[in-house]
Amino acid sequence: NNDALSPAIRRLLAEWNLDASAIKGTGVGGRLTREDVEKHLAKA
């Protein structure tokens, strides 16, 4: 759900053309954090 994404995370996902549903969020309530996105990018 994009409503739970911060503007910074939305921008990062758009910049790298990533799908938020493909990344497991570790923040409060399962929210994506910058670290989650960076770890996903490191694996790719």
Rank of each mutant, 00 (worst) to 15 (best):
P7S: 10
L5Q: 08
S21I: 06
N2I: 13
A42Y: 08
R34P: 08
L41S: 02
D36R: 00
R31M: 13
T26M: 03
A44G: 11
D3Y: 04
L18S: 01
V28E: 13
A20P: 15
N17R: 07
S21N: 14
H40E: 07
K24W: 07
A44C: 14
A22Y: 07
G25D: 02
I9A: 02
A42C: 07
G25A: 11
H40Q: 05
N17M: 07
R34M: 15
A8P: 05
E38N: 06
L41T: 03
E15Y: 15
A4V: 12
R11L: 15
S6F: 04
A4M: 13
A4H: 14
R10E: 14
L18A: 04
R10D: 12
V28P: 15
L32M: 05
L32V: 10
A8K: 05
R11Q: 15
L13M: 05
G29F: 06
D19G: 04
E35L: 10
L18T: 04
S21E: 10
T33E: 04
K43L: 15
R10A: 12
K39G: 09
L5Y: 07
P7E: 15
D36T: 00
D36A: 01
A8N: 06
L32R: 01
N1T: 13
I23S: 01
A14Q: 11
E15M: 15
L32D: 00
K39M: 13
V28W: 08
G30V: 02
D36N: 02
H40G: 02
I23G: 01
N2S: 13
S21R: 09
E15Q: 14
L12W: 05
N1D: 14
L12V: 04
A14W: 11
A44I: 15
A8M: 07
H40D: 01
S6H: 09
E35Q: 12
D19R: 05
L32Q: 00
A42K: 11
L32A: 02
T26C: 00
D36S: 01
A14E: 13
K43E: 14
E38K: 08
L13C: 15
A14L: 13
V37Y: 02
R11M: 11
A44M: 15
K39T: 12
V37Q: 00
G25L: 04
E38G: 04
A4C: 07
A4E: 14
D3H: 11
A20F: 06
I23N: 00
T33D: 01
N2D: 14
A14R: 11
V37K: 00
E35P: 05
L18I: 12
